[in-house]
């Protein structure tokens, strides 16, 4: 599936829910997230998607249109190339944030408690057949 398409995003949401390690690690988590993929490398426009995350479940996914407002607790942004590194597990999400390769807006203290949960989201992605750009 081509990355950042609706089909791919639906599969991503399903993969999170099919990953029991995510539901264990994030059973306490409440906080929706917006991922902002900025143009870089082969991506020439900004893509944003929403992940609904509540008590160990992915409650919904959605590609967010330009100009559309979404209510989220966390926004994680960065260039496409860095997101690809995370998706391929060449870069750890938290290390990515710590080194400034990704930027986070939201409560840092809460995020620091969710490092394992974040990792399980990325692990879930390994089960989605992804065709990169």
């Amino acid at each position: 599936m081509k990355i950042l398409t609706k089909e791919w995003l639906d599969a991503f949401g399903k993969a999170i829910n099919d990953n029991p390690a995510y539901s264990e690690a994030a059973s306490w988590w409440e906080g929706n997230m917006l991922c902002v993929i900025e143009p870089s490398g082969p991506l020439d426009r900004e893509v944003r998607f929403f992940l609904g995350l509540y008590h160990g479940e992915c409650t919904g996914v959605k590609l967010v249109e330009e100009g559309e407002e979404v209510d989220v607790e966390f926004t994680l942004s960065g260039p496409y190339d860095n997101w690809v590194k995370i998706a391929k597990k060449e870069l750890d999400t938290i290390q990515g944030v710590m080194s400034g390769k990704l930027r986070l807006v939201g409560n840092m203290a809460k995020l620091m408690r969710a490092t394992r949960a974040a990792q399980e989201i990325v692990n879930s992605l390994q089960n989605v057949e992804t065709e990169f750009l």
Binding site: A21, E24, A25, W28, I94, R113, T115, N123
Partner: peptide, 19 residues
């Protein structure tokens, strides 16, 4: 175990424990 899942160092392991 709940606290373990919320401890930042927990995700830095080469092998991630389940519950």
């Amino acid at each position: 175990v709940n606290l373990c899942f919320q401890d930042a160092s927990g995700s830095m392991s080469p092998r991630l424990p389940s519950k």
